[in-house]
Design a protein around this nucleic acid. Structure first.
Lengths: 197, 197
DNA sequence: GTTAAAACAGGATGAATGACCTGTTTATAT
DNA sequence: ATATAAACAGGTCATTCATCCTGTTTTAAC
């Protein structure tokens, strides 16, 4: 036979395709509800390549958390708040943006981190650690901004408020997902506007 | 053979045993991560009896939501707040009680409703409707109390605040579960103490 | 007392899942 | 140029899972 030359060895690209497909599927349908074959088909990857990059589902899950979920939190929350003039303005702007985006499309899929954290933190210690680390970085970053941009003097109080902001947002998103309605997020935004100094 | 006489036909008790076992397993490990055989073994029920009472896993899940999760919310949140002198005092007392109880045992399993709602609301419409109904009753009850005990005059504002309280609590519990630490709940309680009029 | 239906027992089954395995191609190092 | 390992293809395999099936016992109706 003639040489195929149809194969393009691109380990990084392959890995990213798998991670992207897994992220979408895990967030939309959940970790346990998603079969490996679904991700494989969605990414258009052979079984051999799949198991070469991710020998087990758990390793794929952990990689999705660290390489995609953490990135989504950084991109949608941490960076915008860091770039804003004040932390309060940044937080409110992020929430407004999320609400607007959700109103655009029909479906509310929820916060990727919260979705996976609640499903996985209970069972496996490694998943729990990974989720907790992302929450920690999120809260840490918001706390620094809240303390740094004049919203709050006390660093400890700023950290507590940051945790509360994340909790309120996460819970509101959970209710919004369950109801398929953005109203909980709007109410949350209005409340945070009143609360954050 | 002699008549067995070891069977005690008790449909209601059998159904309750299954629901109890399923509730524990679903909340602790999640819906999809729990196998039917686990529940069957935990409840000590034969396959025939099991499929007689709950022909499918989905029907069992819906029954757990309506018969156990809704009850847990009513018992741990709605009734205590209704009995309290003011809604604010009731809400803070409930949170204090939950924090104290969580500190007693080692493990934070999370809010039953939030755990299941986030896992199931995305995929199936029936689950989503069932979860949303429980959230609605929860928010409705808290809203009535907040409006009725002098905390807030405007009924619509009271409803929004009720939703925010539930969101903040749910999110704080999610973080507490992920971190296996009650601090998010303590911070949440302190914040709600400042916020609720 | 007879009949019908509900309540239960215990096992069987087909489908689906996660992991694995053998081969082939491409890149890298020497 | 050659050896070695990584990257990839395609299929298999054991296991687990949810459901269903046949048969027995209890309850209820008439």
């Amino acid at each position: 036979m003639s040489p195929q030359r149809l194969r393009s060895n691109d380990p990084e690209g392959m890995r990213n395709r798998i991670l992207d497909a897994a992220f979408v599927a895990f967030v939309a349908r959940g970790y346990h509800a998603t079969a490996m074959t679904e991700i494989r088909d969605l990414a258009g990857v052979s079984g051999g390549a799949f198991s070469h990059h991710f020998p087990s589902k758990k390793q794929l899950g952990l990689a999705v958390l660290e390489a995609r979920v953490a990135g989504a939190v950084a991109q949608s929350w941490i960076v915008p708040v860091q770039k804003a003039v004040t932390a309060k303005a940044g937080i409110l702007a992020v929430m407004t943006a999320i609400i607007t985006e959700l109103e655009g499309r029909g479906r509310v899929t929820g916060c990727p981190l919260n979705n996976l954290a609640l499903e996985l933190s209970g069972g496996d210690g490694d998943f729990q650690t990974a989720c907790a680390a992302i929450f920690d970085r999120w809260q840490g970053a918001l706390g620094v901004e809240l303390a740094g941009t004049g919203c709050l003097e006390d660093a400890e109080k700023a950290d507590s408020l940051a945790g509360f902001v994340i909790a309120a947002y996460s819970g509101a998103m959970a209710m919004a997902k369950s109801r398929q309605d953005v109203r909980p997020l709007r109410d949350c935004r209005d409340m945070l506007d009143q609360i954050i100094p």
